[in-house]
Simulated scan of single mutants.
Amino acid sequence: MCRILFFLSFVFFSSVLFSQEKSCCQTNVSFAGLSEDKAFRDAHQLPKDFVLQNAKGKMIKFKTEDGKEANAYFIESPEASKKFILVFHEWWGLNDNIKGESDELQDKLGNVNILALDLYDGVVATKREDAAKLMQSNDKNRSMEIIKGAIKFAGKDAEIGTIGWCFGGGWSLQASILAGKQGKACVIYYGIIENTPETFKDLHAPVLGIFAEKDGWITPDVYKNLEKNLKAAGKKVIIRSFNADHAFANPSNTNFDEKATKEAKELTLRFFKENLMN
């Protein structure tokens, strides 16, 4: 009898510890891991055929320290400006939708240079399975070199903002960390990186995080943990969540929420104007 009670007690406490550990682990999410989740893949609708008309920018190449070249969609400021915004694509790659978002940013903000980076080195996906493979196989070291090259392209006196969606949201945050004191504003749309307070020791830019309360992956627990760690590191952070689903700001997604997207864009523009453009 005593052995049975001991065994049942062991099972009970083990299950409690496991559930606590699982809950803790869920506050850190890896996009490479999410690419293996069929539900996550299926949540991303195939992008609509969209061809950018009257593009404001052009594709350029710049050198990276690993001896290669990187691609970017570059919109030069109408007037000479040291203000730059680095734009980071979703898991699809640098497609016309992201170029269109870049055009809109430049149109609304005025004298700022926009550099939409290609972290897939010229590859763009149109199928979920291909996008998942690209995101999973993304070489973090190569992406870091591309970002460093972009910061060097902007120049040592540049003031840098960053923005990205989903996969690109995490890279927006990483880029602002890499930008150090040059970083002035970081915007994340339902993106994340694995983080602790120590992660943000080199971050100087304030952060605006835009999230979806119905998101089954970047859940409220995940982005609240991000907020907690940013504040613990002494960083400025604004978190705004919407009653919407993952990828709600992508017009090619069935989860597209026009009202939430409009409000999120207004927040984004105000944030950039207050922290980068002033």
Rank of each mutant, 00 (worst) to 15 (best):
H89V: 06
E104A: 11
F88P: 02
A43L: 07
I151E: 02
K83V: 08
D245I: 01
F256V: 00
F256R: 01
I160M: 07
F271L: 14
K38S: 12
D37H: 01
S241I: 09
S35Q: 13
H44R: 09
D139L: 04
C24V: 07
G209C: 15
K38E: 14
V11T: 03
I188L: 10
A116T: 03
E101D: 01
L5T: 07
L178K: 01
D37L: 02
N195R: 12
I239P: 00
A125H: 08
L109E: 08
W92P: 00
K156T: 13
N275T: 11
P206T: 12
R270I: 07
S19R: 10
K22E: 02
A55M: 02
F242G: 01
A72M: 00
L17H: 06
K181N: 06
L117Y: 03
Y189G: 08
T64N: 00
S81D: 08
L230G: 14
K259H: 00
F167K: 15
C186V: 07
Q53T: 15
K48M: 09
K127V: 10
L117P: 00
E266R: 13
C186Y: 08
T254R: 06
Q106W: 08
F88R: 08
E266Y: 09
Y223L: 10
N253G: 02
S30P: 00
Q136P: 01
K38G: 03
A247P: 00
W217G: 05
S137D: 15
M135H: 11
K273H: 14
S35K: 10
I193Q: 08
Q136W: 11
S23K: 13
D96V: 10
S102F: 07
K224T: 14
K48C: 05
G216F: 00
L203I: 13
G93P: 00
F31R: 07
D96P: 02
G164E: 11
C24Y: 09
